[in-house]
Simulated scan of single mutants.
Amino acid sequence: MPSGTPYRVAIVGAGAIAGAHLSAVEAVGDRAQVVAVADLDAERATAFAAEHGIAQAFGDLATLLAEARPDLVSICTPPGAHREAVAAVLASGAWVWCEKPPALSLAEYDAMAAAEGENGPYVGYVFQHRFGSAASTLRRQVAEGTLGRPHVAVCHTLWYRDHDYYAVPWRGRWETEGGGPAMGHGIHQMDLMLSLLGDWHEIRALMGTLDRDVSTEDVSVAAVSFSSGALASVVNSVLSPRQESYLRFDFTDATVEVSHLYGYDNSHWTWTPREGVEADGWAPETDEASSHAAQLSAYLDAMDAGVRPPASGHDGRRSLELVTGLYQSAITGRPVLRTDLTEDNPFYTQLDGGGQYKPVRPGRPEELS
């Protein structure tokens, strides 16, 4: 902290994920302090503040910004509320750390990016899986060519969410969640893959609504090519009783894998060199788990330096681009290039292309609303 004074942090949205943001602030010690919380349910905000010893609680964001004057605001609301909240916080002069998925569309993402100042404040997004020591080590090895060229990747998010999970009104709806498991669940693993392999080039996808009573998909599969020439298999599901988050990267000289669920440490990763190759010095030097705290520490480093934080701008946009391309390919039945995602593309504005997806479950010919 250049001034030696803790950054004043506010949390907007007092639901379950707010606890992870509070814990992250507590983990960075005297670098930051949560000074206020807001929620449209003022009683919930008051209860959250009382439980965690937060000085101020508010029933609306505008009052929080005016009275608490935070340096950094964590946006923990459902996705449909991100754009308005981010714009208000940036206009107040505070920096923003916003939960995933970033926005309901690329159009919304770009509108939020346009509200940033040339030299800040900036809006960054929560993609904590790229910030553990193992992922950071692999990212450096990719950049330095330690393992050779990337050739093949596997990125599978196989989770399980039952029917009750989708009883929450905003879930499983294009207009409020933006999409299904590709948008709300697999985006974490896809972001980690993209942070390692860089920009994608082309995607060919399928998706279906096989069991859940939602208007989005509940499973998708895709084949992706990257600018480097690497090819990837991507699966996103909420129908998988044995849950796993699995990524595999096959390089010229090694295979690197991670199997976890909602977070990892070094023990979840393996480096397997090809025969005849020595793996000396490949192991991570430290063991930092992926977490909100790990990402927040990097975010505060950027605030200290007055520079754009990781997982913002183009770096934060990559995963939403891939999700958009996935939906367009699956819905239209055609391959999609990253360069196709222009402002005149209907999927740029709405991830279902403006009502183009009509889910039909097997055995139920009627369309779901």
Rank of each mutant, 00 (worst) to 15 (best):
H268F: 12
N119M: 06
K358A: 14
C98D: 11
E257D: 14
E343P: 10
E367P: 03
A205I: 01
Y357H: 06
V73E: 02
Y7W: 10
L326P: 06
H156M: 13
G15W: 02
A47C: 04
L22K: 04
R173I: 09
E84K: 03
A24Q: 01
A294W: 07
D199M: 00
W174M: 10
P365V: 09
I75E: 00
T63P: 08
V89R: 00
P309K: 09
W200K: 01
S220M: 07
A57I: 12
R149I: 04
A134I: 04
G179K: 06
V142P: 00
G198A: 02
Q356H: 08
G29E: 13
A298G: 00
C76H: 07
W269T: 00
S3E: 15
A311C: 10
P365N: 14
L65I: 05
E108L: 01
V152Y: 13
L197R: 01
P2N: 14
Y125D: 15
V152D: 12
W174R: 09
E257G: 09
V154N: 05
A222P: 05
H201C: 07
G13M: 07
H82C: 05
V34T: 09
A62P: 00
A182K: 04
S319H: 03
W97M: 14
D250F: 01
G333P: 05
L196A: 07
R308K: 13
A279H: 08
G263M: 00
R242L: 14
H268C: 15
I75M: 09
L341Y: 06
P2L: 12
H82P: 09
D41Q: 10
W269V: 00
D250E: 12
G93D: 04
A103F: 02
V89E: 01
T137W: 08
Y299R: 07
T5Q: 13
A330T: 00
L72S: 08
E51C: 05
F226W: 00
R308T: 10
C76V: 13
F48K: 05
L65T: 05
A254D: 06
V28K: 05
G132N: 03
G178S: 07
V28A: 11
D250Y: 03
L326K: 07
H129C: 09
A85T: 08
V96E: 01
W271C: 14
F347H: 03
A57P: 07
T324S: 09
L158G: 11
G208M: 03
H292N: 13
L300T: 11
